[in-house]
Design a protein around this nucleic acid. Structure first.
Lengths: 200, 200
DNA sequence: ACTCATAACTGAGTGCAGTCAGAATCTATT
DNA sequence: AATAGATTCTGACTGCACTCAGTTATGAGT
């Protein structure tokens, strides 16, 4: 009786365990070697599952990266959102949200850039992709909330401006030309653009 | 004597001919079937060269797409630049530059989106890639020139604002979420954002 | 005309993401 | 506990972008 209320059979439990093992294996290998140098085979082996099984849990190698990075990104957003509240200047507050995301994205440059690539060009029907887009939406909302402090800007404008800032961030982080820049340099690059955007 | 001044030997001529055949073959096959459904093997066969030879002329499949699309893009920019001169309103003039680029990019959605992907994530050391980036730079200059008409905006701001508009265009055209939108819908999407950007 | 060094070409081969037909495992039913 | 039906798993296989060791064409030097 005590456990009968759980509707989780062996099947569900096994599935969850496998997903956990996949997440752990992917997380470890990707952090250690970067996407380019990790094969799906290695991840399957480390997770102790068959080649084909891996692709039941992540439709593409890209989805595997989303699986791992979404969590970090969400965490970065959380931190930035908290920071932004303590800062009164609007530009500085926006950049307080931006910085942790850039930091998170640059922990491993290849992984970060590929993550962005997957986000924009991947299949939005896949659940991990949808999750990523949802975090982007939350980021834009957080930025819009900061912009909303200035009475000059209407609600629609705040949302649109936030979307523009999101686009600026994306390209500054993703562009091959910027691949060699440090975190500070990228943040500075974004600052310049957002500065112009907000000062017109 | 009459032709002796040409320093072009058989070698140079052969190379040029091959590049021409590759360009023609790629152009035709990509337009007919889209990148996803064309193999590099098919392009090599149609150009009547060996598999390995193809990759002496284009380091990756993506470079092959750049080779074909750069010309179209440059042409679209040309048209937009001319149009913009006849329009006095700044927002409308900017959109006169934007529209032909969107039209060009959407002739075949897959090709257009992949082209943008290559631009941002490809290897900038490759010559076709550098060419693509140069056209982007020219686009931003054309937009900056239009923005320069408003005396309010400084030269630096014009360049930065043009860069922001470039980012807006990129994401509106590239995003998977927008893959199903018509040309008009995308232009409208861009217009909304640029409108907010210029009206603040 | 003949050599030789160098540049250009080639297609069989490699590595890897992703597939699929059949095996294994689970759950519901009697 | 036996059976059947559904779900999940699996690794040999496929297709394709890209490579490289060996071959061929070119042109400069004699």
């Amino acid at each position: 009786m005590s456990l009968a209320s759980q509707p989780v059979g062996r099947r569900e439990r096994n599935k969850q365990q496998k997903l956990d093992r996949i997440t752990a294996a992917a997380s470890e290998l990707l952090a250690a070697h970067g996407i380019e140098d990790v094969t799906t085979q290695q991840i399957a082996d480390k997770a102790d599952i068959g080649t084909g099984t891996l692709f039941l849990y992540a439709k593409t190698k890209g989805e595997l990266l989303l699986l791992v990075q979404n969590a970090h990104y969400a965490e970065a957003l959380q931190r930035g959102r908290a920071d932004a509240e303590t800062i009164s200047d609007v530009l500085d507050a926006v950049l307080a949200i931006v910085r942790p995301i850039v930091e998170c994205n640059r922990v491993q440059v290849d992984n970060g850039r590929t993550y962005l690539r997957e986000m924009v060009f991947g299949d939005p029907a896949e659940p991990r992709h949808a999750e990523a887009l949802s975090i982007v939406a939350q980021t834009e909302e957080a930025i819009a909330a900061v912009l909303g402090r200035q009475p000059l800007v209407g609600a629609d404008d705040a949302a649109t401006t936030a979307r523009i800032i999101s686009a600026i961030m994306f390209l500054s982080m993703a562009a091959s030309v910027n691949a060699g820049l440090s975190i500070d340099e990228i943040v500075q690059d974004i600052r310049t653009q957002v500065g112009v955007l907000l000062s017109r």
